[in-house]
Each structure stands twice: as C-alpha cells, then as structure tokens.
Design a protein around this nucleic acid. Sequence first.
DNA 1: ATAATTAAGTCAATATGGCTGACCTAAATA
DNA 2: TATTTAGGTCAGCCATATTGACTTAATTAT
Lengths: 162, 162
Amino acid sequence: MADLNKLLTPLFLNEKEIRKVIELLFFSYRDFTAGPDKILEKLGFGRAHHRVIYFVGKQQKLTIKDLLTILQITKQSLSRVLNQLVKEKYIIVSTGIDKRTKNLSLTKKGQELENELSTIQIKKIRKIIKNYDETDINGFKKVLYSMIEEKNKLKFNEINYK
Amino acid sequence: MADLNKLLTPLFLNEKEIRKVIELLFFSYRDFTAGPDKILEKLGFGRAHHRVIYFVGKQQKLTIKDLLTILQITKQSLSRVLNQLVKEKYIIVSTGIDKRTKNLSLTKKGQELENELSTIQIKKIRKIIKNYDETDINGFKKVLYSMIEEKNKLKFNEINYK
DNA sequence: ATAATTAAGTCAATATGGCTGACCTAAATA
DNA sequence: TATTTAGGTCAGCCATATTGACTTAATTAT
C-alpha cells in the first residue's frame, strides 16, 4: 500500500521535493528580511518595528486593535515597540470617533523610514519578478496564499480588498 | 518619466501588487511555522531546536561548522540549543575522522521528533500542492529560489544536489 | 440607569534566541 | 615550529515574545 502510494505520487510531491520547499521558505524568508534589518539596527529598532511601520503606513488611522489582530502578538509586546516609535516621532496617535480607540498614523519621518525599508523589499521583488512570466508569478502568489490559515486569509483579503 | 515607467510597468509589477507579495510572505511563513511551534513548546524547545533537528536529520554526521554555515548564527547561540538536544538525547555527538570535528546525528528519539515536526509541514505542503498544477508549483519554487542570496543559493544546492 | 463589554494601558516576571567580546584547547596544516 | 581551524565556554547584553493581574474610560446592552 505504501508502495502503491509511492507509485501514484507525482515526482513533485515526493518527500524530498517537499523538503526542498521547506528549505526554500527558510532561506528565502531569512534573506528577504535581512536588508531592512540592517537599517533598523542602526536606529535601535528591530523587525517588530518594521511590521508596525509597514501596516500603519499601509492603512493610516489604523487602530491598536487592528494592529494586534494583524500581527497576532500581545498588547504588551506591541506596547513596547509602539511607544518607542511614538516617542521618536515616527508614529502619531490620535483619538478615534469612538473615544476608546486610538488611530495610528505615520509622521513624515515615519513615512520616510517606511519608504526606505519597503523600497529595499519592493526593488528586490520587482527585480525577481521581471525575470519570470506571469504564469510563474501567479503560481508563486497562489501557493503562498494557500499556505495562510483560513482565518488569516480573511484578514489578508480585508486589508487588501476592502 | 515616472509616468512613462508607470505606463510600461505590467500590472503584476505594480507597487500595490508587490506589497501584497510582501504580506503573503509574512502571513504564510508565520502560519507555516505555527504547527511545529506548538509541539516544540510542550518539550521546552523553540524554533531554533527545530532547525537543528531538521538539518541534522537531513544529513546525518553533519559537523558543527556545517550547521553554523547553514543557520548563520553564532557558535554561542547554537551551543545553547544543541547542548539541550544532546543532554535530552535527541542528538548524539561523535568525533569525526578529522579529530577536531564532531559529527551530529539524530538518535531514535530525535528521529521520532524530527518526523513528527516535519510531517506537519510536509502534509501541509502536499495538501496545497495537490490543488495546483506543476506549472504553478514550478513558479512558486523558482521565485522562492531566486529570493535567496547568491552565496546561500550555493549552500542550498550543496545540501540538496551534492 | 445600571451592568457588561470593549479598547487601551500598565506592572511584573519569564523565556527564547539572537548578539559581542574575550579567552581556551586540541588537532591539522603550512 | 607556527599558524590556522574546529570546537567550547564564560559573561553580559538586547529584542521579542509570553502569561497573569489589574486599571481606566467609553460604549453598548439590558
């Protein structure tokens, strides 16, 4: 039965091939985040700061709760990072219409940093994407998307297609 | 000129589309590692232990230097993690032919854990891959591969095609 | 009007996984 | 014989996450 399965499994579904995918994910993700990490380090920031700046930049007036839902970290973890960014004037906080909520927005300084960090990654992806045809890129995006948990797919769609 | 570039840029190279890719990477990578993380937590281990177990499992008799080159962390960082795995008998250390080196191998206990952890990720990928044709999967793999830095591509090829 | 829920904040303790710097031993190689 | 390499270790530091407990203020539900 195990042999039968082996015979019926297409080559690209072999365990060996799948292990390559695991490694591709590990290596590519690490190298992808390495660029911004260097800039952040000089400012005394880490990857967590980048995430906050990225998502606040994407959607100005984001609330703290939104950010917590996207990042899936605790309030306490976010708090440290966010307070630093506010104190150093990368992010500005205002009270929402619902006065319990707070709206986060990037300052000019914050936008500049966001731009610097994102540009590295955008250039990297654009450079890669140019070498492939739309079929490959679509495959890439489709497979990545399906790796996201259902509940988080909703989140992804919400922030991109609302 | 900027307008001209905009006109010449295919739709899937738009900044907005590229930002989606950035987010896809973030969400998918996080969800992909979430499964094993839960099991590791029960054992008092973290993702770093997983990486060590994974690569030692892939290539028995791996040396410490090999592992350091793959993981790109410091000796001191590896040491803590590795010593725990040795102490708790997931990994066994023997002296190499070059008596300065050490060969790392998984014990039976280690193999069982490796299997448990990898199975989660392998199943996940296999399930996804089954829903797509080979064209998509190839696009996925090709693009991921090209996201790896040149020097690390060599490393990836070395451990997979040597 | 009051009770319950929600958004946000805070204090304290803990764990993981990285880092640097300094220094050591033993074995292999130049 | 001198140098390089593989590995180890001590100490301290930092970033990022966690849990638990508790508070305030505003909104919503009863």
